[in-house]
Design a protein around this nucleic acid. Structure first.
Lengths: 244, 244
DNA sequence: AACGGCCAAAGGTATGACTTATGACACGAA
DNA sequence: TTCGTGTCATAAGTCATACCTTTGGCCGTT
């Protein structure tokens, strides 16, 4: 790799080069760290990055600053840029989550995210029952009905889309911005679960019922039932993961 | 402000100026955004930042790259650097959490974090019961006993320290790195709760018992009881927040 | 009123120079 | 031998400057 910077890469220091250059480097180094092929303790230098990717010091610095902000690396004078231990990473940064999902260690990331879902969604359901807006409540009920329709029709594709929308809407309407920030990750997990064929061919009636129960409980502001019903939905997931 | 860059600030472009300059700017702008005094949609320019803080373009760029990575801003040619809507922020970034806790909006951040605790800790307890190491289990039991001792002695200061250690150890030993990453935030919340005098003068016996129950259940690998007992601990918090 | 071209503003990138911190190593003293 | 101590080379931190590229807004034409 290295010199093969995608397009022609004339030596003409054109001052502006290929835009998104910065992103390319960030992506490459980030993936390398997230996948473990750049092990904790490994050292990089700005000089080295400039050579490796054919970039200027400016871009190399920008990239490292971002990685440093994610705690993937730290930099010290005279030493260079050092890869941090994974236990110090900002594991909630969407970029890092994406990189890890793209790596060999995908499975670990999925199970962490799934466990997080199991923890958060019931409390989010309770929050939604308490704080969702009127329109959010009715949308949720509508989605619950739609899920049953699609589930019984056996249209897995459309079911997945509606299921994602259901769970996202819940996180969006629960009034906690830290839960809301998990929207995309939940979508990712649900998508993957279907892709991996971990979903039953037809959603179980029990699951459909539980979704409707959540929606109804949220709609009437019943925090306890909303939470319990969501818990029920996730029990299925928990079983599948061997967490019971 | 501006020119008063802390020390002397001779005009001699000394190329190296006051180190941690970059951090100073990051902090200032970050706090301004987090507190809302730089409203979403506000626009900055690199030029402006250079003037405002007496820094070079390099430092201004570094700073903005970090803020951009946190999704606090985005930058567009010909427009400048624009403050993002809060709903797009990376609200799990420890820097942002810190800034928000230091702002007027402290209360919102605390309640989000508390709700997150309520969601995560029971599942973390179950995870610890399943996956903690032998030494972690015994440490947890020891901490449970210590909590009772300190609680009954009425030493709130020492109790807080042990309580933090208890909850952190649990998050650390539950085997989910996304839960572990919440260690510091939980410590922050617990500390604040005591500081604000929201703790009873003496911890209630029920709470002490629940901590011991969690420790014992984790020690013998009983996921169900560990989760339930932790849930019980947090019910107290939930009540205090009016979430029941 | 809609379309198209021009201009200036502001970020993106590249360079080169200088400052500062610091790991490593050599040297000398206890 | 071991433990400071001083020197030096390295690599990040910062600054200044220059040029390219994108793009929002203005203006004139159709």
């Amino acid at each position: 790799m290295s010199t093969a910077t995608a397009e022609g890469a004339d030596d003409t220091h054109d001052g502006g080069a290929s835009p998104a250059m910065h992103e390319r480097v960030l992506e490459a180094v980030g993936v390398a760290i997230a996948s473990g092929s750049l092990a904790p303790g490994s050292r990089l230098t700005l000089e080295g990055l400039q050579q490796e990717y054919g970039i200027s010091r400016t871009v190399a610095r920008d990239t490292m600053k971002v990685l440093e902000s994610m705690n993937l690396v730290y930099s010290r004078r005279r030493v260079g840029i050092v890869v941090q231990q994974p236990s110090l990473w900002n594991v909630y940064d969407p970029k890092l989550v994406r990189w890890r999902l793209a790596s060999e260690r995908r499975a670990e990331q999925y199970s962490s995210l799934t466990e997080l879902r199991i923890a958060v969604e019931p409390i989010a359901a309770a929050g939604a029952a308490r704080r969702a807006s009127a329109s959010e409540r009715s949308q949720l009920v509508a989605l619950g009905a739609e899920l049953r329709r699609l589930g019984e029709a056996g249209d897995l594709q459309a079911f997945l889309a509606a299921d994602i929308e259901f769970h996202q809407l819940l996180l969006r309407s629960c009034g906690n911005e830290m839960f809301r920030a998990l929207e995309d990750m939940v979508a990712e997990v649900l998508t993957s679960r279907t892709k991996q064929g971990l979903m039953p061919f037809k959603p179980r009636n029990e699951a459909l019922q539980a979704h409707e129960d959540v929606a109804a409980a949220v709609a009437r502001g019943d925090t306890v039932v909303a939470e319990r019903a969501m818990h029920h939905i996730l029990d299925e997931v928990r079983n599948a993961m061997g967490l019971y």
